[in-house]
């Protein structure tokens, strides 16, 4: 469960480059809900995920995850509640470390890391099983360095890593944007499988209207740091990409004085 209330984030406050990335954003996500997030460049999508993960700080408003107020928590502390896959395949893993070392890092998310061995037989067996589910042959390459993998393989492993510690909230920031169409489709499919199987609460940012409608159960659009529409249920089912684009244009084209106009 996620609850973001009246959150404001400003970059470079008091400088000529002052940028109000989030301007009183509200969003509630129920347990097990899979929300897709759209919006033009600079709308604040990544900042929203950063404010959830702790990479950006809310200067006003509150952020709750699983009923806990985490507004003041630093990123590492929030990792016990939240897992994340980045847009850049390089960002979510350590290329200098091996596949199994990356997985061991993720498996220990949210627990104390002591002086026990990071890798042992049972863990390697578990990682091998998990990797086998990807069907990419990575189960035989546990000791290969992460840097040897392709972007798609790395995103697939990143997704797998996000599930190892049993956290229930998953943040995905255009995690297929850097991939070719076929690989992107594979990673999206894997995302859906993982979210379903583990009953995760997920927020997925995407630049593809098609993907936004095809995945999850609810779609929100951000514009200038706020949620400008939020569709679900029958209304969303009836929508196709052109409808969504029309909504998108309406919001961007004219300065809306009242968001409810859109939703009525």
């Amino acid at each position: 469960m996620i609850s973001v209330r009246d959150v404001h984030v400003t970059f470079g406050r008091g400088t000529p480059l002052e940028n109000r990335a989030l301007r009183g954003l509200d969003l509630s996500v129920a347990d097990g809900e899979f929300i897709t997030v759209i919006g033009s460049n600079g709308a604040g999508k990544s900042t929203l995920l950063n404010v959830l993960s702790g990479d950006a700080r809310a200067e006003r408003g509150t952020v709750e995850v699983d009923g806990i107020d985490v507004t003041r928590w630093p990123t590492p502390k929030r990792a016990s509640l939240i897992a994340r896959v980045f847009q850049d395949p390089m960002a979510g893993t350590c290329e200098r470390l091996t596949i199994e070392e990356n997985m061991a890092l993720a498996q220990a998310r949210g627990r104390a890391r002591g002086l026990g061995a990071a890798l042992d037989k049972p863990r390697r067996a578990l990682f091998r099983d998990k990797l086998a589910m990807l069907g990419l042959g990575l189960e035989n390459r546990l000791g290969d360095s992460m840097g040897l993998l392709s972007g798609g393989q790395r995103q697939a492993v990143s997704l797998l890593m996000s599930t190892l510690a049993g956290t229930k909230t998953l943040l995905l920031d255009e995690h297929t944007a850097a991939l070719d169409p076929r690989t992107a489709a594979f990673v999206l499919d894997l995302t859906r499988r993982i979210v379903d199987e583990q009953k995760l609460t997920a927020l997925m940012v995407t630049h593809s209207m098609r993907d936004a409608l095809d995945h999850g159960s609810r779609t929100v659009m951000l514009h200038e740091g706020k949620v400008v529409f939020d569709i679900a249920g029958e209304r969303r089912k009836a929508m196709d990409v052109p409808d969504l684009l029309r909504l998108f244009k309406q919001v961007r084209g004219e300065e809306l004085s009242d968001d409810s106009l859109l939703l009525s």
Partner: peptide, 14 residues
Amino acid sequence: RATGANPRMARAQG
């Protein structure tokens, strides 16, 4: 080692 290799990823892993 993760701290040196990719600090942002390391923080995201707690």
